[in-house]
Amino acid sequence: MRREDTVKKCVSVLALLVSLFAPTVHAQDAERPTGEMMGNTCAACHGTYGRLGSAAFVPLAGMEVEEFVRAMRAFRDGSRPSTLMHSVAVGFSDEEYQAMAEFFAAQRIEE
């Protein structure tokens, strides 16, 4: 059983009710994955914990929160051209961008 405080529990229940009426999976689910859980799915391109040497992809470790969120938004709305980042960005909500951004901002940089 999850140890959540009452407020979070109410929000979760509400979100669950909303999601029950949604036929497809939406980015805002009852129990949100942590920034680390989500961020670690990025590692295959962007480096383990965002640390990348020389590669075509951008390293995410130490990236400023604002820069990360802005980038994901721009990928999502297509204003920034991409190959597959648009598809990836569409799969996450703004809150999740924030959580991932905070996770990466806290990672040590290692060139």
Partner: peptide, 21 residues
């Protein structure tokens, strides 16, 4: 600069989006 992905790494005005570029 938009079509060839320059903006994608170097930024909208070329101001650079990462310490890498």
């Amino acid at each position: 600069h938009g079509q060839l992905f320059c903006a994608s790494c170097h930024g909208e005005r070329g101001e650079s989006l990462s310490r890498h570029w």
